[in-house]
Measured scan of single mutants.
Amino acid sequence: YETDHQDYCEVCQQGGEIILCDTCPRAYHLVCLDPELDRAPEGKWSCPHCEKE
């Protein structure tokens, strides 16, 4: 299903190369994640907010 994702990072509120959560509309820079990621994850990815739930 399609979600309207943010076009900015949930953490720093800036645009650029962001990865999109497959569960919610949030988006993140790899370096803004904690722990940060070296590269975009393959397959489905859930953001830290969704992982907690």
Rank of each mutant, 00 (worst) to 15 (best):
H29G: 01
G16M: 06
D4G: 12
L37Q: 06
Q13Y: 11
D34H: 03
G43W: 04
R26G: 10
C47V: 01
D22V: 06
L20P: 15
E42A: 07
D34Y: 04
H49R: 08
Y1G: 15
Q13M: 13
H29P: 01
E10T: 14
P35R: 08
G43I: 04
V11L: 14
C47K: 00
C32N: 01
E53T: 07
C24R: 00
I18G: 09
D34L: 10
G15A: 15
D38C: 05
H5T: 14
C9S: 02
P41M: 06
L30G: 11
Q14W: 03
I19F: 05
C50M: 02
C24P: 00
Q14C: 11
L30P: 12
D22T: 06
A40T: 07
E36M: 11
E53C: 02
P48I: 03
R26W: 02
H29I: 00
H5K: 15
P35E: 05
V11A: 08
P35K: 07
Y8C: 06
D34P: 09
K44D: 04
K44V: 03
L33G: 13
Q14D: 07
C32P: 00
E10P: 12
R26H: 07
I18S: 05
E17S: 09
L37W: 05
E10Y: 14
E2M: 15
C12L: 00
H5G: 15
Q14N: 12
Q14E: 11
Y8K: 14
Y8A: 15
D38Y: 02
C12R: 00
R39L: 08
P41N: 11
E53V: 04
Q13I: 06
E53I: 04
D4T: 13
Y28G: 07
S46K: 09
W45T: 08
A27E: 01
C50N: 02
L33F: 03
D7G: 10
P48D: 03
P35G: 10
H29A: 01
C50T: 03
T3E: 15
K52W: 03
C24M: 00
C12G: 01
G15Y: 11
T23K: 01
H49W: 06
Q6L: 05
E17P: 02
C50Y: 01
D4M: 15
A40I: 15
E36Y: 03
L30R: 11
S46T: 10
L20R: 14
K52L: 04
H5V: 14
H5Y: 09
T23S: 12
G15L: 04
D34R: 06
W45F: 14
C47Y: 00
P35M: 09
E10W: 13
V11W: 05
T23R: 07
H29Y: 00
C47E: 00
W45S: 06
H5C: 15
E17K: 12
E42Q: 09
K44L: 11
P25I: 05
T23D: 04
E17N: 13
Q14K: 06
E17D: 10
C47A: 00
C32W: 02
P35N: 07
R39S: 12
E2N: 15
S46C: 04
Q14V: 08
Y8G: 14
E51T: 08
C21L: 01
D34F: 05
D4A: 14
Y8I: 15
I18L: 11
T23I: 07
Q14H: 07
P41A: 09
C24Y: 00
E10V: 14
H49G: 11
G43E: 15
C9D: 01
G15I: 07
P48V: 08
E36C: 14
G16R: 14
G15W: 09
P41Q: 10
Q13K: 10
I18Q: 09
C21I: 01
I18A: 12
D22H: 03
Q13S: 11
P35Q: 06
E2C: 14
